[in-house]
Computed example of a mutant assay.
Amino acid sequence: MSVTWNRHHILSLADFTPDEYDTVLQTANSFREVLSRRTKKVPTLQGQVVANLFFESSTRTRSSFELAAKRLSADTLNFAPSTSSLSKGETILDTAKTYLAMGTDIMVIRHREAGVPQAIANEMDRLGVKVGVLNAGDGQHEHPSQALLDLFTITTLLDPEHPHLALLKDKKIAIVGDILHSRVARSNLWSLTASGAEVHLAGPPTLLPQLFADYVGGEERGVSGEGRGTQTIFSPHTPYPTPHTPHPRKLFLHWSLEPALRDADFVMTLRLQKERMTGHLLPSLREYHQQFGITRDRLKLCKPDVKVLHPGPVNRGVEISSDLMDDPRCSLISQQVTSGVAVRMALLYLMGSSKL
């Protein structure tokens, strides 16, 4: 496998180029073929060490990265904060430098605070070592690998042999739910709008606040119950590099569900992150489901062959009805989990190969 990759760290998708997206998609597709074999292991990262430094709880992401590293024949180190020296007063940067001293080549970082992966990457660069840092989710900032596996799931559905970014041009994609607290949504905004897709955000005003319009520029500004504004995206929380895109990014905001779903090709529903909520942002889970829950009846507003995604974990009967979640004719949720291993293999491979 021969590809060109110059990115040392993967911390954000804000400045990903179309070529980089396509490189990830095509590399992941190659590894998807590897994962279908009887022998699912390749020697591409043999001799390298991948450290999974998860300062925050995770099931899917952590397991997916660990399996991806092992499928590439890398040695893995797994960090658990509850049994670490953090409880004795050690700093996060000192923890990272401890793993560096053990010979780590790639650090996969997850933390409840935004900016921690960036801080560790800066420290590795300051030390002049060739250690790549991959952001596995930081606070309310970003979750690049999740957005890339979502992109891979959708594009392989549209073209199983040659998934590429341009397949989503002019597709309508609705992202519904707790946008405010979602790092997954923020990363997906970059990747999906870079493809030329029309992205519609929908949620109650407390979970889709005005700041998502205030921090962006475009032809129109603001949102309303039925209104929608087209914007070029910039994060409401973090200054990003200049985005790479050959066309204006199309983003629409809604405080009601129907206009977001109407004629949608794909619907992504997000978990209500109750652990991140302060104050009473919702009257009740029942009322939220009545207004913004994705059900079979509501999908009648979408295209006939609409597909539904959810990054997990899922609150059944809140964000999405159980019958819809378990229906393989329209749910891509299990495919997202499967795609995660191939995409994370691709990311680790690209980062590991750039060290050589």
Results as ranks from 00 to 15, higher is better:
279 G>P: 05
269 T>A: 05
306 V>A: 10
116 V>I: 06
149 L>C: 10
38 R>C: 03
254 H>D: 09
297 D>M: 04
312 G>N: 01
230 T>K: 13
217 G>T: 12
281 L>G: 07
295 T>L: 11
232 T>N: 15
9 H>P: 06
246 P>K: 11
325 M>I: 14
297 D>L: 09
110 R>T: 01
204 P>S: 10
265 D>G: 01
158 L>V: 03
75 D>K: 15
205 P>F: 09
110 R>H: 00
240 Y>P: 00
236 P>D: 09
250 K>P: 03
153 T>C: 03
264 A>K: 13
203 G>V: 06
64 S>M: 07
283 P>G: 00
333 I>C: 10
157 L>K: 13
140 Q>G: 14
231 Q>K: 11
95 T>Q: 05
325 M>G: 09
193 T>A: 04
156 T>C: 06
177 G>S: 03
294 I>R: 11
251 L>K: 14
54 F>N: 13
86 L>T: 05
307 K>G: 11
27 T>P: 05
313 P>A: 12
285 L>R: 01
19 D>T: 05
32 R>F: 03
152 F>R: 12
32 R>T: 08
267 V>F: 11
52 N>A: 02
49 V>H: 12
41 K>P: 02
34 V>T: 11
326 D>C: 03
272 L>A: 07
31 F>K: 13
160 P>T: 10
231 Q>R: 14
316 R>F: 12
96 A>G: 02
245 T>C: 10
86 L>C: 01
166 A>M: 01
56 E>I: 13
240 Y>M: 12
199 V>Q: 08
42 V>E: 04
113 E>L: 08
147 A>L: 10
321 S>W: 11
100 L>C: 12
333 I>D: 06
53 L>T: 00
351 M>T: 14
123 E>C: 13
138 D>W: 03
355 K>G: 00
161 E>H: 10
303 K>R: 06
48 Q>P: 00
22 D>R: 05
114 A>L: 09
330 C>K: 07
106 I>W: 07
